[in-house]
Design a protein around this nucleic acid. Structure first.
Ligand SMILES: NC(=O)c1ccc[n+]([C@@H]2O[C@H](COP(=O)([O-])OP(=O)(O)OC[C@H]3O[C@@H](n4cnc5c(N)ncnc54)[C@H](O)[C@@H]3O)[C@@H](O)[C@H]2O)c1
Ligand SMILES: NC(=O)c1ccc[n+]([C@@H]2O[C@H](COP(=O)([O-])OP(=O)(O)OC[C@H]3O[C@@H](n4cnc5c(N)ncnc54)[C@H](O)[C@@H]3O)[C@@H](O)[C@H]2O)c1
Lengths: 211, 211
DNA sequence: CTTAATTCGATATTTAATTATCGACTTTAT
DNA sequence: ATAAAGTCGATAATTAAATATCGAATTAAG
């Protein structure tokens, strides 16, 4: 059964998780949609509707929901319990940061290998092995890896993407500032920091003009 | 004059830029909304409406717009021509990657200094000086820096945020997976990779269930 | 010169997302 | 007990975003 949820709601769920974890550390056992909404400065109605979509049990009037159950529900919905394996291509500055980032583990993603063009020998970063990109197709096929993370220079990104898809990867998470062309069924997510900066700069500009 | 644009449109503008730059390298002088739309696999109407909001001159029927003029218009709108200075606090794996990232320059942002708790001596990363976080308030105040980038561990993020705001920073770009509480007028942007992963995982899950 | 193919921009229309309203139900305090 | 405050969930209303439609304009092809 596929539960339908809008991408907007989906993106809010990890944010709720952050708030809920804070509540847990504060020793709160119950929380309501309005508590979360206050903490995030968004509308309580929106939170309530989002939670209704993913919660397994009902909320209690004048009390809200159990914090730990809610965390479990969101994590289950987001698939944090079933680990997806990923590989990363391009072990430069950003690639290294991502490989050594412990947070992904909480999100149900495990980077099991890295590949780089400038590598002859195998070495490891935080126990993650790094291989030459030449052996990538073989290894990725054998391990049936589903997610490919691209952190190579932009002029290499499309070629790397094609190789990953050839090797059977189903989803691409691309950090290079280029648009990747992929067949219809392939999932691509472009992580573009310029988007964030666009939002920040625009708000700054507006604030500057207000005064 | 404050041109109103939705956040959704705003986030698409840097993506158009990526396509347009590709067109330029291909030697195309003109392009239409549908060309961009095709390249990005989104609706041409949406592109046309977005462009209408920021273009300075009108499009030509059966020809579209001048690619280079369009690039200029988007860049101007996004403020890529006027450089905003930023500082980064937390010079670990991610901090180093961001400091050495050359892309920000194109986006009108310059990271002029970094600060870390584990630093006694001044050193540099790609010519960007890194100081002890102790001198941060002083330096940031003196330089009137507007943007603060936070790449410290999550339990330090709120404290660092408060220090940055005390030092007069107007906007915070936070990479730590915590929610930052700030006064009303302050601009905060949370960069949460879990959001992206939520979208990717959800699509993967749906695709898995289809078969 | 005429026709066909594109494209724009303006104005609907449709769809999606957010916000509001309200009755019912618990808990807590008086 | 009773009243008051807080919450949920369902439904309705509003707002925002995306998509569709259409006439006018321009180019390129025949
Ligand atoms: N550094 C950042 O903070 C940052 C931020 C946003 C986006 N990006 C983008 O991420 C990408 C990587 O950035 P970076 O700063 O890590 O650059 P980098 O130069 O440090 O790393 C790139 C790595 O890719 C490797 N490489 C090159 N071609 C390859 C290929 N065909 N196959 C496998 N490996 C290959 C290089 O050997 C190098 O190690 C770039 O596209 C950049 O624009 C970086
Ligand atoms: N590495 C990634 O790819 C990644 C991805 C997403 C989010 N993040 C988040 O970004 C943050 C940094 O990640 P990282 O991998 O670079 O960690 P890291 O441990 O490599 O770096 C953290 C740095 O912050 C410094 N620091 C600690 N407390 C400080 C303080 N009070 N003031 C100034 N500096 C201080 C440390 O000395 C260290 O150099 C974390 O919150 C992490 O969750 C990292």
């Amino acid at each position: 059964m596929i539960k339908e949820i809008s991408e907007q709601s989906l993106r809010r769920l990890p944010q709720y998780l952050i708030i809920l974890q804070k509540f847990l550390t504060e020793g709160r056992l119950y929380c309501s949609a309005s508590h979360i909404a206050d903490a995030m400065q968004i509308s309580a109605i929106q939170v309530r509707k989002d939670l209704a979509k993913i919660a397994t049990d009902e909320g209690v009037p004048n009390q809200g929901r159990k914090v730990n159950q809610l965390i479990r529900d969101i994590e289950t919905f987001l698939g944090y319990n079933t680990v997806s394996e990923a590989v990363i291509v391009g072990v430069g500055m950003l690639g290294r940061a991502l490989i050594s980032y412990k947070g992904f583990h909480d999100y149900g993603v495990k980077i099991i290998m890295g590949f780089d063009a400038a590598t002859q020998d195998i070495f490891t970063i935080n126990k993650t092995p790094i291989y030459s990109v030449k052996v990538m197709p073989n290894l990725v096929k054998r391990m049936r890896v589903k997610i490919g993370i691209i952190t190579v220079p932009k002029d290499q990104a499309q070629a790397v993407c094609n190789q990953l898809l050839d090797a059977g990867v189903q989803a691409i998470w691309n950090f290079a500032p280029v648009h990747l062309d992929v067949p219809e069924h392939v999932i691509v997510h472009h992580e573009n920091m310029a988007e964030s900066l666009a939002v920040i700069s625009n708000k700054l500009k507006k604030q500057g003009e207000k005064s």
